[in-house]
Structure formats: structure tokens, C-alpha cells
Amino acid sequence: MIKTDAVIIGAGPTGLFTAHQLKLIGLDCEVVDNLDKIGGQCIELYPDKPIYDIPAIPECTGEELTNSLIDQLKPFNIKFHLNERVEEVKNNNDRWEVKTNKGTSFNTPNIIIAGGVGSFEPRKFSLKDCEKFEDKSIFYAIKDKTIFKNKTVSIFGGGDSALDWAIELSKNSKVNLIHRRDEFRGAKSTVDKMHKWAKEGSISLYTQYQLKDVKGGPESLESIDIEHDNKEIKHLKTDFVLGFFGLIMQLGPIANWGLNLDKKTINVDTEKFETNQKGIYAVGDICTYPGKLKLILSGFHEGALAARACFKLARPNEKYRFEFTTTSTNLLKRLGKKE
């Protein structure tokens, strides 16, 4: 059990700046994010897209913004728990117990949810029957490629993941590659290689097809039906199905924590950005209040105020004193600018 002053859920721009604010006022914090990297939507959805409305930064990309925020955290030692999703939040004697899906647990008076539109999860097949084969014969990520050896694997998708795995697995498995249109959006060299291998017969390529039906016993898949745009159906024997359709954002377990939700957002006050649960705050795109703007700059403001609210619960016997980084010896020490 890790004891900390605050747990931040979400390592996007708002979560990062909130961590900065907490450390600056002398609190410690730990950050949890379900992605394998820091940056949230900025890094996952639009790393190359320019943003024009960050104050004092006329133009920067999502990736540049993320890197600058990480730079700004350099004076502080902040522990990130990536690839982990917070599953459970439980009240215990005025503190919160927080558990992730990897078994990490925290004990903290403050939880700041900076979760954007939710956590990124693989996008799945729309066919309901796919659920019963999930993690047995149908996968959305590969953990152990040896299970596919000498088996038939049907891969769906048109991006780099689908192409890379089709090429890789075709060395030891029979591979069907199925995509809804003729064009693939992967790197050109990969697309060319795939077409070459398809021509030579080591990958069976089906374009303008989508998954129509899955058939098999209770434990394993036996075959699938795929449907062409012209409604023609093809029946393929297969042991495994892999779907690579990118990531989708889902609110996930946050919905179960007793918070006052409004569609996919969480209601907060505008003094502390606290939810209906004492010590749980929501900042950035995931929070809502009258006049809410879904801008990165709003997230920064919300995080700064939530951090001050955390101080009261983390240091009940101390008084928070407002200070400027230009003049405060305390703050400059924390920033490593003064001995």
C-alpha cells in the first residue's frame, strides 16, 4: 500500500500540470494512466496536430506540449504508474483506498480525476457473439505470439498493427488478412511487403469484407463468416481472430464510484473542483460545471485550484499560504533553484 497525499488519475496535460501544482505547494503525488505513455489524448490522438490556444505558446503540437509539461516536472520526483487502470476506490476512515488492475494500491486523502473522456481501450468487434470468445480465441492485443504457431489466424484491420502482425505471424501460421476497403493506412513499405506476400500466397487477403458471424464450441472458435460489400459471404476456418481497430475512450470503472455524473462528465464545484465525494476532485475535460470550457487552459486552472484543496486534507494542521514562484524561497527550493 503506497501512502501519498494525492493520486492523480490520468497523465494528460491537465494531470501533468496538476502534479506540478501539488509538488510546488509541497504535497507528494502519484499518477496512474491506462496508456503505456505519458500525454493522454495529446499523445494518443493528435501528437502531430498543432494547437493554437495555449496561453503564451502561439503554436505547438500535442507531442510538443506533452514534452514541455514533462520538462516542467523535472525538478520534482513523480512516480508514474503507466499501463494501469484504477479499478476500485473505497472510503476508509476519511481516506481513500485506490486499487489498480495491476494490483497496485494507494492510501490517500485526495484523488484527482483528470481522465479526459475516459481511459483508452481497444475498440472491439460489434458482433455480440465475439464476447464469449474474447481472450480465448479472439484478441485485441497480443501477449504471447507462440500460441498461434501452426494455427490459422484471421486478422482484421487496415493499420500498422494489423499489417505488422499479419507479416510477423505468417512466418509460422496460416494468416487471413481482412479489411473493409482496398486501401491500407499503414507505412508504405509495410503495405508493399504485405501485398508482395499476399501475391506469393503466404497471406490470404480479403478486402471489402467485414466480420459477419463467428462459430465454434464453448471454449474455442472454429470458423467465421465474412461479408463483402456486395453481400457475398465467405466462410473461413480459423482458430484465432485478431482485431486491430485502434483505441476508443471509455469512462470505465469511474462510473461505479458513486460520483454525480452528467453523461460522460462529472459534476464539480468551481471552488475546489470537488465532486459529490469529499476528497475526490475532477479536472480537465472530464469535469463539468456551469460555463465549462473543454480547453486545455481550463484544465490547468482547475488543477491548480484542486491542488490547493488537497492541501487542506493532506495537511489538516498546517495553514496553506499563497506564494509566488518569483519571490518565495520555499517554492524556489522545491524547484531546485535555491539551496
Binding site: 475498440r123 487496415g158 479489411h179 476497403r181 486501401e183 460489400d229
Partner: peptide, 11 residues
């Protein structure tokens, strides 16, 4: 079109 590959049941 690339993004539509990700959509739910595109046609």
C-alpha cells in the same frame, strides 16, 4: 477514410 476504419460498423 482512415478514421472510418475505426468506426462502429461503417458502410
Amino acid at each position: 477514410e482512415d478514421m472510418l476504419d475505426m468506426a462502429f460498423e461503417p458502410n
